[in-house]
Design a protein around this nucleic acid. Structure first.
Length: 590
DNA sequence: TTTTTGCCTG
DNA sequence: CAGGCAAAAA
């Protein structure tokens, strides 16, 4: 078969592309790539310059601190080192060294968080002192994690502490992504030059940011960085940074996040129980017994969210942990019992593992998108892909440019994540980004369109081109079955029209042709491209013509008396497969 | 053995 | 289109 070459080459590259950065083990390594974190770090520091003038550079556990003499890796690995240290002894005295470092880190993180959450940042002094103690608590929790690696923390308070930490990290991640959004939009706008003025672009970015409930401080950051990091190199660095930050965020305490996430998902879906995030945050001290950190944590949490009021969360927390909460604060376009996670597929409840996959997917998606900002489409409704096919084949749409540029950024799902369910409903198609347990009608549409390129796709090709599908034996065979059915219909039509040609008195094979006006083509197009919104490649017409001619010849020669007369034709046709455009691969992030 | 394919049926 | 089956292919 001639199916293999293209997909095989993709197989390896895809896996290698994302997994290394996504696996936790990646961080047991020197974290060379994490050094690119200095980009964001630098930006943050730049933005915060006036506020942090008195801050020692060493406080920043960012690679840029290397300049001040720290080991290049110490910053990114000190967590492990300190945890290791802590694990050897649980006496409080042993905390002094690591606590010192962590306290510093916490201070910086708190300031950054404070800035993000509160433009005025008028509580920095307060947050600093809090941070020291919060950090101590966090450290304690880390020790506990070490002792109980598999066991779920019985005390809610520590889980929440960890969750809060996740909140912060996720927020940072989102901020980074938002910066990238801005930059990528600029990039895209250059690609789709027409119809896109700089001002519109700004507005788009602004609206995205607004929907993300970003505060003014963040927007300022975005502006600063957008002006400073437009180069490809900077983009690359940012990508790497995002990858690593994401991995770090997701990998560090994914278990804790998910335990909370899954429970919160269920608990907070009912508006009566946990109306919003702040409520949840305020519950922290109640659930948590008598740990000093808890009250501190509470303050910290409020500090994190207060600038937006109870109904408005900062973006990162909502990204993952608080999604259901946010759903309470906005219009609910779908039934209460349905979580956003369920939007994507059938409404079947998702299990923790699926949610985990969802989260895991999101990171790579984001980073991957950033790696191919312009031409590579994101997973999207096949209507959109069809549109794009038309666009690329000359039928340039009028108002599509904006859509493409925004969609291609792969950021709509970020927007959704931030709780704008209205928007999410409008863009529900993007929920295909989720890993599907089964095949959806959209997948069927996609498969049908792919049939225009390949009649005999290998299972590996299918896996490559359906990256949002969780493949198993059943799914694979179902997809293969689809193509088998497609072929069946295809060949039936061929035979039918070949016989019709003979009946019509056609004598020469050369008189047989298939054009877009042919009845045969219309029949096929109706079957595989019912909406007729996909520009069928000319190659398919050629293949169809060859197929029809093959049938015509065989029937003319009375080969159809042989029970297996079609097999010879099949052998010919299976060699006529062409590569499926990369566009179809869409979100091949994993 | 497992995976694919083709055919038939509903 | 999916299921079932048998045969072919890997």
């Amino acid at each position: 078969m001639n199916l293999s070459p293209p997909e095989h080459s993709m197989d390896g590259s895809k896996a290698e592309h994302l997994l290394p950065c996504f696996r936790r083990s990646a961080f047991d390594e020197p974290l060379a790539s994490y050094h690119s974190g200095s980009i964001i770090s630098h930006l943050l520091r730049k933005t915060l310059h006036n506020k942090l003038t008195s801050l020692d550079n060493n406080l920043l556990y960012l690679p840029s601190a290397n300049a001040s003499g720290l080991d290049p890796e110490s910053n990114s690995t000190d967590d492990f080192a300190q945890e290791e240290q802590s694990r050897t002894s649980f006496k409080d005295e042993d905390l002094s060294v690591s606590e010192h470092l962590q306290a510093k880190r916490a201070r910086v993180e708190n300031i950054i968080r404070g800035m993000a959450a509160s433009p005025n940042a008028d509580r920095e002094a307060e947050s600093e002192s809090e941070a020291v103690r919060c950090r101590r608590d966090l450290l304690k929790e880390n020790k506990r994690k070490q002792r109980l690696p598999q066991h779920q923390e019985p005390s809610q308070s520590h889980t929440k502490t960890s969750k809060d930490e996740e909140c912060h990290k996720l927020k940072e991640q989102l901020q980074s992504m938002q910066r990238l959004l801005h930059q990528l939009q600029e990039k895209i706008s250059h690609v789709h030059e027409q119809n896109y003025s700089e001002n519109e672009e700004r507005e788009d970015a602004g609206s995205e940011l607004s929907s993300l409930r970003l505060d003014g401080g963040c927007k300022d950051q975005v502006k600063v960085e957008a002006s400073g990091f437009g180069s490809d190199r900077a983009m690359k660095n940012l990508r790497e940074t995002l990858k690593c930050e994401l991995t770090r965020t997701v990998g560090e305490s994914i278990d804790a996040v998910f335990k909370k996430l899954s429970t919160n998902l269920l608990n907070q879906l009912s508006p009566c129980r946990s109306p919003d995030c702040s409520e949840t945050e305020k519950r922290i001290p109640e659930d948590s017994p008598s740990d000093l950190s808890d009250s501190e944590e509470n303050v910290k949490s409020r500090h994190c969210f207060e600038s937006h009021g109870p109904e408005h969360q900062t973006e990162a927390l909502s990204l993952v942990v608080r999604k259901p909460s946010l759903s309470q604060a906005v219009k609910r376009p779908y039934p209460l019992h349905q979580t956003p996670f369920q939007m994507g597929y059938g409404g079947a409840p998702l299990h923790d593992s699926q949610i985990l996959e969802h989260l895991l997917k999101y990171g790579p998606h984001s980073t991957f998108c950033l790696e191919r900002p312009s031409p590579d489409p994101m997973e999207r409704p096949w209507e959109s892909l069809a549109m794009r096919s038309k666009l690329s084949s000359g039928h340039l749409g009028q108002h599509q440019t904006g859509l493409v540029s925004v969609d291609a950024l792969c950021l709509p799902h970020v927007k959704m994540e931030c709780g704008d369910l209205q928007s999410m409903a409008e863009r529900s198609s993007f929920m295909t980004l989720n890993i599907q347990e089964g095949l959806t009608p959209n997948h069927l549409k996609k498969a049908k369109l792919m049939f225009f390129y390949t009649r005999y796709p290998s299972s590996s090709l299918l896996k490559n081109f359906f990256p949002d599908v969780k493949f198993n034996r059943c799914i694979t065979s179902q997809l293969i079955k689809w193509f088998s059915n497609f072929r069946e219909f295809y060949y039936i039509q061929m035979e039918k029209f070949a016989r019709q040609a003979i009946i019509d008195g056609v004598n020469d094979v050369k008189d047989i042709s298939v054009t877009r006006e042919s009845e045969l083509f219309r029949s096929l197009n109706m079957h595989y491209n019912k909406a007729n919104d996909f520009q069928v490649p000319d190659r398919f017409l050629e293949v169809a013509e060859v197929t029809l001619q093959e049938f015509f010849s065989a029937i003319s020669l009375s080969k159809d008396s042989d029970p297996s007369w079609k097999k010879a034709i099949y052998k010919v046709i299976c060699k006529l497969d062409s590569d499926v455009p990369e566009d179809f691969k869409s979100t091949s992030y994993l």
